[in-house]
Amino acid sequence: MPGSANVAIQACNVDLRLQRAGVGASVVFSPDAHLGAAWLPFHDRLAEHFEVILLEHPGYGGGDAPPWLDRVTDLANFYLDALTQLDLARVHLVGAALGGWIAAELATRNTTRLASLTLIDPWGLRVDGAGGIDLFARTDEQALYDLSFDPKKAEPLVARLLAPEAEDALLKGRMMTAKLAWQPRLFDPQLGKWLHRIDVPTLIVWGREDRLLPTPYAAAWQAAIPGSRLVAVANAGHWPHVEQPLETAGIVHDFIAQQRAAT
């Protein structure tokens, strides 16, 4: 079980909720918009080798959003402040979906506290003609199934996210997601211009059956970040770390271990 703590990030006047487990190199996980700060088997697996720190984005998890939070770049700057205040160095930053977008924005700004970057089906880039479902035209339930490859396996997760006691988190979370990603849908036209600035080893992981961001997005990310590597995960939709936790944790572990061996 991870330990949980709230840390006041003074510069931004926000209590940042963190969950931590494991020892070793710091792996900071920036989660997606739907699962929020759910601690997953994927995190457990990584925590066997590293200190895993799971973030909870302000505005998600049922808490109120801070008044300054308007766009994804605000969160990128916020986490740069947080890394500084927590004095985390040589961080292996891993972000999924919305969390991947935030991580990429952060890394285009400043990588001095990063050792590597892993992006799992990140939002944030536009790929003309690549298609994908409109998340905002689906019910919560439909969206959760659309994002999954195997609806049968997704059932318990969907039930948990839609449970009455999670209503505040669900409703506030989707308001926050709309605020961050409604227009343009799930991307920032400015981001692609600056991905070349990411100068830490970067791994891109993609669910082969992602219906929100089909695989042409994966190729676009790889092309935009110099020297990045792309690994596709079979039998996984938008959340390979949820649907194929052991395989995905293995891919991320090997990548991080390699970077550590190289330095």
């Binding site: 905002f136 689906r138 019910t139 505040d168 989707r174 709309a178």
Partner: peptide, 15 residues
């Protein structure tokens, strides 16, 4: 779903 996009109404009215 399109009739009630997130954030259009306050949390209380959505509930």
């Amino acid at each position: 779903v399109m009739m009630s996009p997130p954030g259009y109404s306050s949390l209380e009215s959505v509930k």
